[in-house]
Simulated assay, not measured.
Amino acid sequence: MSVPTTTLRVNEIFLSLQGETSRAGLLTVFVRLTGCPLRCVWCDTEYAFKGGQSLTQAEILARVHEFGVSRICVTGGEPLAQGACLPLLTALCDAGGDVSLETSGALDIAHVDPRVSRIVDLKAPGSGEVDRNYWPNIAQLTAHDEVKFVLADRADYDWACATIREHRLDERCALLFSPVAGRIDPATLADWIIADRMPVRFQLQLHKQLWDNMRGK
């Protein structure tokens, strides 16, 4: 039986420190929605592909409010795969939240509430999902947003650099380079960025450093 559009399938809601983006290290409430149409070969949240529970928008807002923290991140999975994600984002903003959205970049971001900071994960070739990137999203990006590249090898790095230059992404928003854990030495990626003077923020996933990516962290 399909879940009514007035509800969302939620994998987990928890309080932690933001592990990525320009908000890394800041206390954040995470709303992780269930489901994702992509299958990146290095995905570290496969548990979010299924499971969870159906909650109404009001129930989600109530749970978020219980933590007493205004910074909220809606993530997945791929949160935009659920149509009811859009009104949820608006409701979280209306309730006074400082809201960010972590999205794969495979789905249209044009209708996301403009108060939301959209963290768009452009898929490099090593992900196995580069053909799923929805390129019209680039025209929607503003200084309020960020673009993340998760890189597995030198080919991914070169692709990301070429993409930035082709689309002049550094003129649109902040850019993030992350190494795939276990696939590329973080220091090697850092050296490439320095050598090429790339206008990006190098990042390691803080939550993995602290908790080895434990669920609910």
Rank of each mutant, 00 (worst) to 15 (best):
Q82I: 02
G76R: 04
V116F: 10
V99P: 12
L86D: 05
G83C: 13
L122N: 10
G126F: 01
C93G: 00
A91Q: 05
F67I: 12
L92S: 02
A62P: 10
C93F: 00
A124T: 15
F67M: 10
S100D: 05
S127P: 09
V99A: 10
D121E: 08
G83H: 14
L122G: 12
S127E: 00
A58D: 05
C93M: 02
P114Q: 09
I72N: 03
V64F: 03
V112N: 06
I60F: 09
A110V: 13
A81N: 11
G76E: 00
V64K: 02
L80K: 06
F67A: 11
C85W: 05
Q57L: 13
C93P: 04
P114E: 08
V74R: 02
I72E: 03
T103D: 02
L86M: 03
G96P: 06
L88M: 03
G83K: 15
L122E: 03
C73K: 08
V99H: 06
L80W: 01
T75M: 00
T56R: 05
Q82Y: 03
L55H: 13
D121V: 09
L101S: 12
P79W: 04
H65A: 12
V99L: 06
V99F: 05
I109A: 12
L122T: 14
D108L: 09
L92Q: 02
S70L: 01
R115L: 09
A124L: 08
E102D: 14
A106F: 01
V112H: 05
T56Y: 06
L122H: 12
P114V: 13
D113A: 15
P79V: 03
A106R: 06
Q82A: 04
D113C: 15
A81V: 10
T103A: 07
T75R: 01
E59A: 15
L55F: 13
G77D: 00
S70E: 11
G77F: 01
L61W: 06
L86Q: 05
A81C: 13
L92W: 04
V64G: 13
C85K: 07
V64P: 12
S70N: 10
K123F: 11
L89W: 07
S117L: 08
V120T: 14
V116Q: 07
G83R: 15
L89K: 10
G97T: 04
G105M: 04
I72S: 02
G83E: 14
Q57P: 09
P79Q: 02
L55R: 14
L86I: 14
I72Y: 01
V116T: 14
R63P: 01
D121N: 08
